[in-house]
């Protein structure tokens, strides 16, 4: 009888412990589920098409859900350049004559689709340029946009939705000719410029990183891609070449081009090229740019002077300090000699 009641007691304790364990386990499990990860990828990240009016093309995109299961929708919105660094301003209302639709049997634009974790979805985007569409450029972005998660009952909360985009640059031309009106609007060494024999020149210490900016303006109605290089020549015959990246310059806009290889320049202001090394004397920088075969070449140049200011100042300070110490030591020695003579 005693043994039975003892076992019953142990059983009750075990039940309580098991219940407690399950409660704690499920509470912690619930917290983990609460943090919902959204992770989407898209390929290709950019598409450029040159099309005749009346033609259509079909492009295959790949969307992959790398996060938790989610519902998303595909949409196409126009954009315009925001600055000269390649950033964009998305317009929330569709505009322009270009027509987009999906060729997928089970998916349409602006309609929700569900993607499980790790699931990829091929998006077949059909782009049509109607007859009579004006010959110019049209810029759009294909977006995959998630739906916001359900509201959290009884708690103040902020829910997020994610959009990931891939740009579409369309040039409409009947003849195949592209309007190329490029111009180097700025090629300069950044930094303070000092008057120098009636001219202004950039002056640096020999060990400074030299920041260079190159901005090209497109005054034509079609996007263009520059090819070329920035060449550094020193007064001792040194020469270095830096290739300009072939980035798109949209119609009637500017683009700060980038050259590589380049050093890293820690500045708020982006630069086209950062030169590092030990420079001494006057250096000339020139750039040659073209926009494809049989196009005129643009040319621009600038220069800078680098002198070892830090080395000179350091040497000067060292000499002064040295002379003071030596003079002090000699004075002490003279005093000792005088004392010995006395």
């Amino acid at each position: 009888m005693i043994k039975y009641s003892f076992n019953k007691k142990i059983f009750r304790i075990l039940v309580i412990l098991f219940t407690l364990f399950c409660t704690i386990f499920f509470i912690s499990l619930n917290q983990k589920v609460h943090a919902q990860l959204i992770s989407l990828s898209i390929y290709p990240p950019i598409l450029k098409a040159i099309m005749k009016p009346g033609k259509e093309i079909m492009i295959a995109y790949n969307i992959k859900n790398l996060g938790d299961p989610t519902t998303l929708q595909m949409l196409v919105l126009p954009f315009e350049p925001k600055d000269n660094l390649g950033n964009v301003r998305i317009k929330e209302e569709f505009e322009g004559p270009i027509r987009f639709k999906l060729d997928n049997t089970n998916i349409e634009l602006n309609q929700p689709i569900f993607l499980k974790t790790g699931q990829s979805q091929q998006i077949l985007l059909r782009i049509r340029v109607p007859e009579g569409a004006p010959e110019k450029d049209y810029y759009y972005t294909l977006f995959a946009e998630t739906d916001p998660s359900p509201t959290i009952e009884g708690k103040t909360s902020s829910r997020s939705k994610a959009r990931i985009g891939s740009h579409i640059l369309i040039t409409v031309t009947k003849s195949g000719n592209v309007d190329i009106k490029g111009k180097v609007s700025l090629f300069s060494v950044l930094g303070n410029k000092l008057p120098f024999f009636g001219d202004k020149i950039s002056l640096f210490d020999s060990t400074d990183i030299i920041p260079i900016t190159l901005i090209v303006e497109n005054n034509g109605r079609n996007s263009i891609k520059p090819n070329g290089e920035i060449i550094l020549r020193g007064n001792f015959g040194e020469r270095a070449e830096y290739n300009i990246l072939s980035q798109n310059i949209l119609a009637y806009s500017q683009r700060q081009l980038m050259a590589t290889p380049s050093a890293y320049f820690s500045s708020e202001k982006p630069v086209s090229l950062a030169l590092s090394g030990f420079f001494i004397g006057k250096y000339n920088l020139s750039t040659k740019i073209n926009f494809g075969e049989n196009t005129p070449q643009l040319y621009a140049s600038t220069s800078f002077i680098a002198l070892p200011f830090k080395f000179i100042i350091g040497s000067f300070i060292a000499i002064i300090v040295g002379i003071v110490i030596i003079r002090k030591l000699n004075d002490d020695k003279d005093d000792e000699n005088d004392e010995e003579e006395e």
Binding site: Q36, L37, L40, S41, L66, K161, I164, S166
Partner: peptide, 9 residues
């Protein structure tokens, strides 16, 4: 591919 993630929405 171009990828974008939000750890907690």
């Amino acid at each position: 591919p171009f990828t974008f993630s939000i750890s907690d929405i």
